[in-house]
Amino acid sequence: MKSCLVVDDSRVIRKVARRILEDLDFEIEEAADGLEALQACRKAMPDAILLDWQMPVMSGIDFLRTLRNEQGGERPVVVFCTTENDVERISEAIKAGADEYIMKPFDGDILHSKFAEAGLI
């Protein structure tokens, strides 16, 4: 069973994502901001990370840049999941090391499609 860390400051979004990803056979951990996510990764590196951009304490993009410089931090497949939909922002995320990118709002079909594109399914 693959593991996925769901990082979003909205409890509702985390719950929705958890339900969809559990159906896709992922084991879910949750974090409410980038710093919590970093702490979770230092404890146990997940296979996949579903990552919001705008969060208090530490943003998704700052978390991703930090993660990619950590020991083993290149391994998780990172899928952004955010309301940011500017092409410049998307390019910035890819440059920072994101593997896939979901523009909110999303549903099960999109999550499934994007996880497949990222080679997670």
């Binding site: 890819i94 979901i102 999303f106 549903d107 079909d109």
Partner: peptide
């Protein structure tokens, strides 16, 4: 936005 996220990788999309 919904249609363009079904089946397209983000790299293909942009």
């Amino acid at each position: 936005q919904f249609e363009v996220q079904r089946g397209l990788s983000v790299r293909r999309m942009i």
